[in-house]
Write a protein that binds this DNA or RNA. Sequence first.
DNA 1: GTACGGCCCTGTTAGC
DNA 2: TGCTAACAGGGCCGTA
Length: 275
Amino acid sequence: MPELPEVETIRRQLAPLTVGRTVLGADSHPSTKFTPARLMIGATFTGVGRRGKYLLFSTNDDRELVAHLGMTGSFRFTGSDRAPTGAHLRAWWQLGPGQERDDGVDVLRFDDIRRFGRLRVVTAGDYSDIPTLAGAGPEPFDPDFNAEQFWERLAVGKRRIKTKLLSQRPIAGVGNIYADEALWLAGINPNVSRLGRQRAADLLDALRIVLDQGLANGGTTLRDYRNIDGGSGENQKQLNVYGRGGQACPRCHHVLRSAAIDGRTTTWCPTCQRH
DNA sequence: GTACGGCCCTGTTAGC
DNA sequence: TGCTAACAGGGCCGTA
């Protein structure tokens, strides 16, 4: 389930392999989630960016290919000019040689077992048809984003803090794993709806710590996440609470509780995340 | 504008 | 051993 660290890891790998290369051919699974891939034929990639959990491939014709990996999506780069195959292949792009390189034709492929991922092609910067992206909060590592702003964003609405984090609106790029980890680190109960200024600041600090750690470890691989080399992340070894319901809290050694909050499995320590 | 439930999907796992 | 049902969950959409 790729979140910010996983998507950023993939972005860093994809950029040098795609920028400056022209899409010679493309095809996709028939689902409209993936057919926009075909609209890239003829375009040249000029950059690979990221916003929250979305990958943004910019092109020389002022468009962007917007990709969300869903839960099981993955990009792979294959040094072959043949049309790829595979039970979970959802889209692929045949890339011509770059202007400053003499490599041949390669294929960028997008596989997605559960088909929760999606692709869109938009005018550069116009995300009005992608509501979560359009409404996404600041990037966690944006130096202009401070605790006061985070507190104000968290104050909107009456939903529980866990639900607010997953909505992407207070801050971008946080999913179930890093939300649970950050709430545990900050000692905040996922069921509370409002936080004071200091606790919001603590939560922002915790989010930055767990996301930075995830990035440093190449992401978290629980089952499906793979980087574009097919390699796994290492961050799963660092998790304190996610997926550990019923086990001892690493901090206070009481039993971790696991329950669904607004349909999302959440694990927390009822003792040291009491409020 | 906000809250909330249902849906999309398929591989894995638990239970019988 | 083999079958069935439950479960995982990010984002979107319709309804209240």
